[in-house]
Design a protein around this nucleic acid. Structure first.
Lengths: 213, 213
DNA sequence: GTCTATACAGGGATAGAC
DNA sequence: GTCTATCCCTGTATAGAC
């Protein structure tokens, strides 16, 4: 679902301005740009992370970046896509999906405030008119997240830790919303106990008669 | 708490570039700028809502706007401050605080998607380094929102509709987070049932033994 | 007090040379 | 694949008209 754009070794024609990326050099350069972008963004923020600033951090001109990404927006989206892929790969390696919601939030916020800030900026863009690319990315992403949450909740239901009197899809949406909103408050003010909020939600989700912990 | 900057008729000296605004014309112009900014933003989005675009919508040069607002960021923040004041005034008029969380969300999202998108853009900025003005505004705002939510929850507790085994502040943070996150998903994809999510949270908050509705 | 005109540094996008 | 040069747009700043 997430990785619908894997194309290593493909030889078919492709959309204009999307480089072939069959050669190691271009592939490495592309990855370097993505990595540096995160770093520069964490330091300078959305407005100041210009193509020129990223290029300077790498040692190339801003125009060179456009061989790999059509626009700044696409570059940023690709950074987020890449991080999602990494997170998914890591989750599959460590175990299957996290049964614990709070640990899911930690993975979600991912210890990288800069990355979360980038996500927030891009989500905001996606709500605006004439931003089809960003909107498509995030509607997809939230759909995926809700699906994963629904799955985790279903497991909890089977294990007796999640009550069964409310629709799964609604609860899934609520869980994702709580993660989003709690991380927002936490990023603004680190004293806000983000994990306590998530644990509270876990408590609320328990069936009425079950044990307190 | 919210209205800490009411200064009509004040005669004290003020910070540089903040006009006195004792004269009706300037006051009206200022209000006009705030109103038009929301409209232009709803149509064009964050990037394209330039000072020049706003000025053009009013019939004034972009430089004129700076008589009223030091920077674009401050203009946007003032738009949000103004909307918060209006919402507060309206809430006080219609009744005291909303006892119903779901209706609170409707007031929160406020039927104005453009405004919510502006809020999201500005919150994102507030998380980044070197954005003290935005950060101060939103930490304040979230503190206020959590306070109001805690108050509403306390009333619910007294009325027997909110369980008493979890700390109020944590639940308040969770409630605000849910509003934020649900409105995000809803703005991206209007089919997502925002109010259902909030009603589900209300159900979850009920004491274990209480009636289902 | 209110506003226009103007200048400036920096941004993303782009064309064409190498 | 990368560069330089260029286009038009942006926020900010200042000078001076009225």
């Amino acid at each position: 679902m997430h990785a619908d754009q894997i194309d290593q070794g493909a030889t078919e024609p492709r959309s204009p301005h999307q480089p072939r990326r069959r050669y190691p050099k271009g592939e490495l350069r592309r990855q370097q740009i993505l990595d540096r972008t995160v770093e520069v963004f964490a330091e300078l923020g959305f407005e100041n992370t210009s193509l020129r600033a990223i290029g300077e951090a790498i040692g190339v001109s801003h125009a060179a970046l456009r061989r790999y990404f059509d626009t700044r927006e696409e570059l940023f989206l690709e950074v987020l896509r890449e991080k999602d892929r990494q997170a998914l790969a890591e989750a599959l390696e460590h175990e299957l999906l996290p049964v614990d919601l709070a640990s899911g939030l930690e993975a979600y916020a991912a210890g990288a405030p800069g990355l979360m800030a980038l996500r927030h900026s891009m989500v905001a863009r996606a709500m605006e008119p004439d931003n089809e690319l960003s909107r498509a990315f995030f509607t997809d992403r939230y759909r995926s997240l809700r699906g994963e949450a629904a799955h985790t909740l279903a497991l909890g239901r089977a294990a007796g830790t999640v009550r069964g009197d409310l629709p799964l899809e609604v609860l899934a949406s609520l869980v994702i919303a709580a993660m989003d909103g709690l991380s927002t408050q936490w990023l603004l003010e680190p004293e806000v106990p983000m994990l306590d909020g998530m644990h509270a939600l876990e408590q609320l989700l328990r069936p009425p008669g079950s044990a307190t912990s």
